[in-house]
Design a protein around this nucleic acid. Structure first.
Lengths: 117, 117
DNA sequence: AAATCATTTCGTAATTTTGCGAAATATAAA
DNA sequence: TTTATATTTCGCAAAATTACGAAATGATTT
């Protein structure tokens, strides 16, 4: 049996956040909420997006489940805004992931120590 | 008819890259290839990951399709490494996305200009 | 020419995601 | 109390993702 290790928590976190970001509707919402640093309502968003109300609601639910946004009930509206704390954590997680490489310019073409023949 | 605009190319790019990153196997591969700034073979990876050879091959194909890695045929091996150019573009794209917010600490609790009542 | 080797492609099954409209919920207004 | 409003949940269908083993590919060794 070859050993088949599990993924580290960091790898799982990155993959899960990436999944939450993997739909244009959800990117749009996060971009809007983080850029303006403000909040908005499902009803405002539905006019700007090519999906229906129930579909939008599902995307908001997913973002909420992923911890990236939070909803504040303000009847009959629900005000959504960025979850600042988790958003900042996500920022750090991704920044670390994207900048892991040694700064050197070593590339495939210049490294042949793995070339078999 | 309420106007239902399409997504900007930037939003689509972000969503597509996020989709490519949305599986732990693919995060693991990218982490390894970018961190070491080196290359590796499908056969080396299969022992480190809890998936079979054909499944791993599919994940590599997806990463290649997304432009994040490239394969160099070196029979009977195929050497995979990061696509440096696209990886750097991705880095910039995500960094911009994650840092779009005005640096202020304004939060949901302090912005009530949208509060209805 | 036959056997071997690393890898991919194919066919298929199980699961997840996405999307919609109808119905439900919960509050405010008439 | 009825009506209207904003939003979600439900039930369902279509499409995409994930995974596997078997077969194919393409080059090398025997």
């Amino acid at each position: 049996m070859t050993n088949k290790p599990q993924f580290t928590p960091e790898v799982m976190k990155l993959a899960n956040v990436a999944k939450a970001l993997s739909h244009p509707v959800r990117i749009y919402i996060l971009q809007k909420l983080s850029k303006m640093n403000s909040c908005c309502y499902s009803g405002d968003l539905v006019d700007e997006l090519p999906v229906g109300r129930s579909t939008l609601s599902q995307h908001l639910k997913e973002l909420k489940y992923a911890g990236l946004i939070q909803g504040e009930i303000n009847p009959p509206y629900i005000k959504y805004c960025i979850n600042r704390k988790n958003w900042n954590e996500t920022k750090e997680l991704f920044t670390a992931f994207l900048n892991e490489n040694a700064s050197g310019e070593m590339s495939c073409e210049t490294t042949d120590y793995l070339m078999h023949k």
